[in-house]
Write a protein that binds this DNA or RNA. Structure first.
Length: 468
RNA sequence: UCCCCGAUAGCUCAAUCGGUAGAGCGAGCGGCUGUUAACCGCUAGGUUCAAGGUUCGAGUCCUUGUCGGGGAGCCA
């Protein structure tokens, strides 16, 4: 069909021009004067195009008068200056064809307010609403900005596997992948399930991170990034966690943690600027209906410097704070949510990059710092914390010294043989390198103000929920 | 997984001390109207999440379960 997107009609077409548009009716208002007003949305932008359909249309009485919210139509007509308020231009229909009827009695998306909880139960129809259309467009813009940012800087896009054999990537519980019959799996002599007879001849899992798999490409080709789905089988029931989510993981060659933090800050600012620039109508809607601070916050961040401080400095600030804690800050323990919020929302009012966490609470692959004057060991890790969402990025400089890495693996109780290829990178031409992971959905949450992560991904997967 | 809260009409919610289950929106019909969160009138619409229990009587109290929300942990 040779149609014009409503976005183009509203921005690029002039009064007097003809066009054909197609979309879904949002609301219908019939006038006894012999004409009807349709609000038409086709997803190309937030705005609706008002269609004026009058009784000169041959199907006016038979079809137009029976249209309701949700019907799909194709309209050919001419752009005219609107006589009413609320829109500058509208389309005078010359021909209106109904593509799909929509029973108003049973259609779940009524022209009224719905709760996000209810809309989750109709996830296949919620993209027809203002909110979820806007979320989808912002999410898309963020994804294109991610690729733009890295491609402009010469990063290579690398596809890491979804299915992995390493069962100790260190980032959480994993989903097993198997084609064995769960009711009657083959058993070995000890009565254990014999995964040697499974599809891959060994135990396999869905990936919890592409990092380990992308490092070899970084240590061969330079700056790289991976961007794909990630799976965590944690029983997490929060507005910030999904069992299936998307993660961007750049890996910088010949780089340390300072380079990494600088990249993370530039990266987030690039994304926020892109969204501000290209999704103005959607953001205006979020700012009015979802979170009245979202525009101010995004603009403020795009222009301000992120705060940098070490874990030890953060502990000092928290320790001196004049308030009571559910978890009193203590060097050696991880930052609690209340600590993170205090830093971002009450102390600095902007993103904070916390670096150099105690080695004992971080994974084996992070670069080990020299002991401080008190003999405490830290690693070159960083978390980028933002107001409300909390941790949006986690990253580190990687340990590239073979002996130190092997020592850390022993301390963590890991078997070197399982990581022979990972250790090879340090054995043969090892280089300092660093990287981070950005949770895409948390980024979408931050840009839209949507409170629940289940509402920024089309079909959320969470414990006990894989509908649609 | 732990703590707290909730589940009533298609949707959003109300229902006093345990005593006849209501409103708004939406829908249908009619009126009015270059309308646009339209407006006015009428009508239909209920296994009060499920299963037990207490009681003359349960939407309301008790138990268990399911689902949802908020907080925490795990993290992105």
């Amino acid at each position: 069909m040779n149609r014009t997107l409503i976005q183009d009609v509203l921005t690029a077409r002039k009064i007097g021009e003809s066009a054909t548009v197609a979309g879904w009716v949002r609301t219908v208002r019939h006038s006894k004067g012999g004409f009807s007003f349709l609000s038409l949305n086709d997803g190309s932008c937030f705005a609706q195009l008002q269609i004026v359909a009058d009784q000169s249309l041959p199907n006016y009485e038979a079809e137009v008068l029976h249209l309701s919210a949700g019907c799909s139509v194709v309209v050919a007509g001419e752009l005219v200056a609107s006589q009413g308020k609320g829109q500058a231009v509208e389309m005078q229909a010359r021909e209106l064809r109904v593509l799909g009827q929509c029973d108003a009695e049973t259609y779940p998306i009524q022209p009224k307010h719905h709760s996000f909880e209810f809309l989750r139960t109709v996830a296949h129809l919620r993209p027809r609403t203002n909110t979820f259309g806007a979320v989808a467009r912002v999410r898309n813009r963020i994804c294109s900005a991610i690729h733009e940012f890295f491609q402009q800087r010469g990063f290579l896009y690398v596809h890491t596997p979804i299915i992995t054999a390493s069962d100790c990537e260190g980032a959480g519980e994993q989903f097993g992948v198997s084609t064995l019959d769960p009711a009657a799996p083959p058993r070995d002599e000890k009565g254990q399930v014999d995964f040697a007879q499974d599809f891959f001849g060994r135990r396999t899992y869905l990936t919890v991170s592409g990092q380990l798999a992308v490092e070899p490409y970084c240590c061969s080709l330079g700056d790289v990034y991976t961007f794909g789905p990630t799976f965590r089988a944690e029983n997490s029931n929060t507005p910030r966690h999904l069992a299936e989510f998307w993660m961007v993981e750049p890996e910088l060659a010949f780089a340390d943690l300072d380079d990494d933090a600088r990249l993370a800050e530039d990266f987030l600012k690039f994304i926020f600027s892109a969204v501000l620039q290209n999704c103005a109508d959607d953001l205006k809607f979020f700012n009015e209906r979802v979170d009245k601070t979202i525009l101010e916050t995004l603009q403020g961040i795009a222009e301000s410097e992120f705060v940098r401080l070490s874990y030890t400095e953060a502990m000092d600030i928290l320790g001196k704070a004049n308030r009571t804690w559910d978890y009193p800050p203590k060097w050696g323990a991880d930052l609690q949510t209340e600590h993170e919020r205090f830093l971002t929302e009450e102390t600095f009012h902007r993103p904070v990059i916390v670096t150099d966490y105690p080695a004992a609470i971080k994974p084996f692959y992070m670069y080990l710092n020299d002991p401080d004057e008190q003999g405490r060991r830290t690693v070159r890790a960083m978390d980028v914390l933002v107001p409300k969402t909390g941790e949006i990025i986690g990253g580190s400089q990687r340990e590239h010294r073979l002996d130190v890495l092997e020592g850390r693996m022993s301390d963590c109780g890991l078997n070197r043989d399982d990581y022979w290829w990972y250790l090879d990178l340090r054995r043969y031409g090892g280089i300092p390198h660093a990287g981070f992971g950005l949770g895409l959905e948390r980024c979408v949450q931050f840009c839209t103000g949507m409170a629940n992560i289940r509402d920024v991904i089309p079909y959320p997967r969470t414990p006990r929920n894989a509908e649609f």
